[in-house]
Amino acid sequence: MNAAYSLDHRRQMTGMSFVAPTVLLIAIILIYPIIQSVVLSFGQSSIDGSEPYEFVGFAHYAKLMGDERFWNSMAVTFTFTAISIPLELMLGIGLAVLLNESFRGKGIARLAVLFPWALPTALNTLMWRWMYNADYGLFNAVALQSGIVDRPINFLGDEWLAMFSMVVVAVWKTSSFMALIILAGLQSIPRDLYEAGRMDGMSRWQEFTQITLPLLKGPILVALIIRSMDALRTFELPFNLTDGGPVIATESLSLYAYKVIFDFIDFNFGAAIVVVQFLVIFAMSLAYIFVLRTRN
C-alpha cells in the first residue's frame, strides 16, 4: 500500500481513527460539560444564551460556603454513604460466601440477588415507598395488625427514620452487586488452600478469617470504591422516596444541585454545586485508579 509511511505510523493512524468516534463522543458528553460547568460557576448567564456571560469570580463559591442547605446536603450525602457502605459490605461478603457454597437451587438464589441490582433504582424506590406508606403500606399493616405498634409509623416523615429507610433501600439494592464482585474474588482463591486449612484443623470461622478475608482484600477494595462513588452521587433514591424530605433531611448533594438548577432555575449557582461535587468524586476516582495501578 502506501509505503511512504512506516508500518508503525500507518498502524497508529488506523488505531487513532478507530478510537476517534469514542473519544469525540466522550469529550462532548462527559468532558466538555464539566468544563462548561466550571465556566458557568464563575459567571452569570442565561440558559438560552440571550444575555452575555458576565464573569463574577468566586462569588457563587463564596455564597456556597455560607449556604446552610449546601452543607446540609453534604452532611446527608456523607451520612448516607457512611452508613450504607459498611452494611452493604458486610451483607455482600455474607451473600458471597453463601453463594460460593454448592447447594441445590443455587441458580435461583443467584438470580434472586441479582434482580435488585438489575432493576431501575427509581422504580425500586417506588416499590419501597409503597411498602413504607404510612396509611396503606405493608410494614405498617403488619405492625398494626400484630399489635407491635398502635399508631402507624411515619417512616418517611421523621428525619432519622427517613434516612434509615433510604439506607435500607440502598442496601437492599446494592449488597448483591458487592456480593457478585466478592464472589468472583472468592472463586479465584485456590481450593487447596482450604484443604490445607482443614488438614491444619481450622474451623469454618478460622478458614474465613485466616484464608478468605485476607485474600479478598483486592476485590473488597474495588467494590468499596465503586460503591462509595455511587453513593456519593445518589440522586433518584431520595428524589423518589422522600423528595429530600422531611424538609431537607434526606436531600443529597445531587438532589440539591438538581433543585437549584431546575426548580430555582439558577444555573450558575447550581454549576458551582456540581463542580464541588465533581471535585469530591473525582478525587475519589483518582484514588481508585491509583489503588488499581499499584495493585497491578
Binding site: 464539566i34 458557568l40 462513588m229 444541585a257 456540581v274 461535587q277 476516582s285 481508585y288 485508579i289
Partner: peptide, 23 residues
Amino acid sequence: LMVGILAVSMFPPVSLLPSLFQN
C-alpha cells in the same frame, strides 16, 4: 487513554446536567 476513559467514567451525571441541558 484507558486510564483517562476510566477516570471520566466516574464523573457524576448530575455534574453534566447544567451544561448538557443548555447545549
